[in-house]
């Protein structure tokens, strides 16, 4: 009976639950789905991580390559993020060139990297004007069940913390680069941005970590990215229900507590994979 009611009147079905301050999957309004992080899952990548938020699954792999630095900034390297939403992950995506949602997600990740200064591009320079690292951060969604931006940001941070770059020296005589694969050093992670998304329901209620179903029924979404100094890196509210400054403040407070949760989780995972 309940299944039939849900199919016919999905919005009313949700309202009945929200009236009792809970969601159909048993969570409270401000509760995240169980988050699992696996760092270093791909051994052939220079850095990788797999993040699950409930059933949303996102995989991030980082590949480092050499390149000549850009001519306008000879002391910088490159970070090239890309988010792929293949038709595998949900029926809403068709095969072919990346759709709007994938492009918007890629832009969002590029904004996170740029605004938070997670890794300084100057750190990626090997020899001024001659050689620099390019980090290709490929993020692939394996299972789409809402809140893709939070999962992508978390996967990116996990993978960046996992990156080990070999030491490189420029041979003075030949001018060629000599790579020492035995000496590997981690990247310097300057900031730890963590994203928290909300779905606005019926113009008033805000649900944290929305599932795909909740996202389609919601009247608006907000994504807040914070770093450890409680500064906002990205604030994204693309249209939807209007909200007041006070309401926004409560969302930001939730984002601050979420930042602590994710930070702790990532630290624990990194600790557990350290060779003893």
């Amino acid at each position: 009976m309940a299944a039939g009611f849900k199919t016919v009147e999905p919005l009313e079905y949700y309202r009945r639950f929200l009236k009792e301050n809970c969601r159909p999957d048993g969570r409270e309004l401000g509760e995240f789905r169980p988050t699992t992080v696996n760092i270093g899952s791909i051994t052939t990548a220079d850095g990788s991580s797999l993040v699950k938020l409930g059933s949303t699954t996102v995989l991030c792999g980082i590949k480092a390559e050499f390149s000549a630095p850009p001519t306008d900034a000879p002391n910088k390297g490159y970070i090239v993020p890309n988010v792929d939403l293949p038709s595998l992950c949900s029926s809403r995506f068709r095969p072919g060139p990346p759709g709007e949602e994938a492009q918007v997600a890629s832009q969002f990740i590029a904004d996170v990297i740029e605004n938070s200064q997670i890794v300084l591009k100057e750190d990626l320079c090997i020899a001024n004007g001659k050689l620099a690292w390019v980090l290709y951060c490929d993020i692939i969604c394996l299972d789409y069940d809402g809140n893709i931006l939070d999962a992508c940001t978390c996967a990116l941070l996990g993978a960046l913390k996992n990156v080990r770059l070999p030491s490189v020296k420029i041979n003075e005589e030949t001018g060629l680069a000599e790579v020492c694969m035995k000496e590997k050093s981690p990247l310097k992670i300057r900031k730890n941005p963590v994203a928290t998304s909300f779905a606005i329901f019926d113009d008033t209620l805000s649900l944290v970590d929305p599932t795909a179903e909740e996202e389609t029924l919601a009247t608006g979404t907000i994504t807040i990215v914070m770093d450890e100094d409680d500064r906002l890196c990205v604030l994204r509210k693309p249209g939807g229900s209007a909200i007041s400054a006070e309401k926004l403040q409560t969302c930001i407070s939730r984002a601050i507590t979420r930042h602590k949760e994710v930070r702790k989780l990532l630290d624990e995972v990194i600790e557990s994979i350290q060779p003893k």
């Binding site: 605004n115 409680d230 509210k237 209007a242």
Partner: peptide, 20 residues
């Protein structure tokens, strides 16, 4: 009507007070 915020996008990092 209510002078509420419909859309926000941002570049760069800033504090909560600055946002308000």
């Amino acid at each position: 009507v209510e002078k509420k915020v419909l859309t926000i996008t941002s570049k760069g990092s800033y504090s909560i007070e600055e946002l308000q």
